[in-house]
Amino acid sequence: MVKIAVMVGSTRPGRRSRQVADWVLSRATSRGGADFEMLDLADYNLPLLDEPMPPSLGDYRHEHTKVWARTISRFDGFVFVTAEYNHSVPGVLKNALDFLYAEWNNKAVGFVSYGSAGGVRAVENLRLIAGELQMADVRAQVALPFATDFQDFSKFRPSQTAEDALEPLLDQLISWATALKTLRT
């Protein structure tokens, strides 16, 4: 069975990404089809990229990078739960992606985003980054506008539209993660 991480893509105080990631993990775990696990960037405390060599060489010098590499290596796919900051990706998520290269290759990724416009511009950026990291991004995504999916713009209350959008994302992610696993073995 494939192993998929639900990655909490923000570490900001008052972040909403943990609420959203908890919902994704709960729904994913109850449906089955893969082993799902929470991966919260707040638990890793990665500094700004400080490796002297390009990540594509895999010559990691710092222990925090080696721990991060071992963590990412365990997974076959990812659901990135991301906010949209200034029409793009939270810096902590971009930094976490930039630390590694081969550990991301030939793995599937899906996106659950939120923000004033549902976080879709962050996902546009993430799709470009995923392509460069040789990740396969699935077409289905969940976009959560503050106006419809957050009570008082802070407490996550998924709409029926959001509930309905998550299933196809998980279906596609499990299928792609399963298929891509054969490339890595």
Rank of each mutant, 00 (worst) to 15 (best):
M7E: 08
M7R: 08
V8T: 10
V20H: 10
A21R: 03
D22Q: 15
D22L: 14
V24H: 15
R27V: 15
S30P: 02
D35I: 05
L41G: 08
L41W: 09
D43W: 14
Y44S: 06
P55F: 05
G58F: 04
R61A: 11
T65K: 02
R70W: 10
R74D: 12
F75L: 14
D76V: 02
V79L: 13
F80Q: 04
V81I: 12
T82F: 06
A83W: 12
S88Y: 04
V89C: 02
D98C: 08
D98V: 02
A102Q: 11
K107G: 01
K107C: 07
V109R: 01
G110R: 04
F111N: 03
F111Q: 00
V112K: 04
S116H: 13
G118K: 04
V120W: 03
V120Q: 10
L126Y: 01
L128T: 05
E132I: 11
E132V: 09
V138P: 04
V138E: 00
A140R: 03
L144I: 10
T148A: 03
D149F: 00
F150N: 00
Q151L: 12
F156E: 15
Q160T: 14
E163D: 15
E163G: 07
D164Y: 07
A165Y: 02
L169N: 00
L170G: 04
Q172P: 09
L180H: 15
T182A: 14
